[in-house]
């Protein structure tokens, strides 16, 4: 199922903050995402740059999906009703139920 992938696609060109499993938080403009939820961010800023100067000269980056812990999303661009409906439908599809999909 590609629900979450689709959600990220609709958020292209929005600003998100990605928190990695090494506790690094990177804010940037979402440029693209793929089926593995690998993420490309533009115009990035690392939070607490004094403690994390490692990426000072990095302007855009590719983050491997598997190292992501959280992504903070812009709430105003997320249609929660649509998500819930799609999630219900998606699950029915997977279980092969006859109910509408």
């Amino acid at each position: 199922m590609q629900l979450i992938f689709s959600v990220f696609k609709t958020l292209t060109d929005q600003t998100v903050t990605v928190e990695l499993k090494n506790d690094l938080s990177i804010t940037g403009v979402l440029k693209s995402v793929d089926q593995f939820l690998n993420i490309r961010l533009d115009n990035i800023k690392v939070s607490d740059e004094n403690r994390h100067p490692h990426m000072m000269a990095v302007k855009n980056c590719f983050i491997r999906g598997s190292v992501v812990r959280y992504v903070q999303l812009p709430a105003e661009h997320v249609d929660t009703q649509l998500l819930e409906d799609a999630t219900r439908r998606g699950v029915f599809c997977i279980r092969g139920s006859p109910s509408g999909c």
Partner: peptide, 15 residues
């Protein structure tokens, strides 16, 4: 690999 970042050479060489 966890992350790949493109270096801005100007900034990087000025550090």
């Amino acid at each position: 690999i966890s992350l790949i970042g493109e270096l801005d050479e100007e900034i990087d060489s000025s550090v």
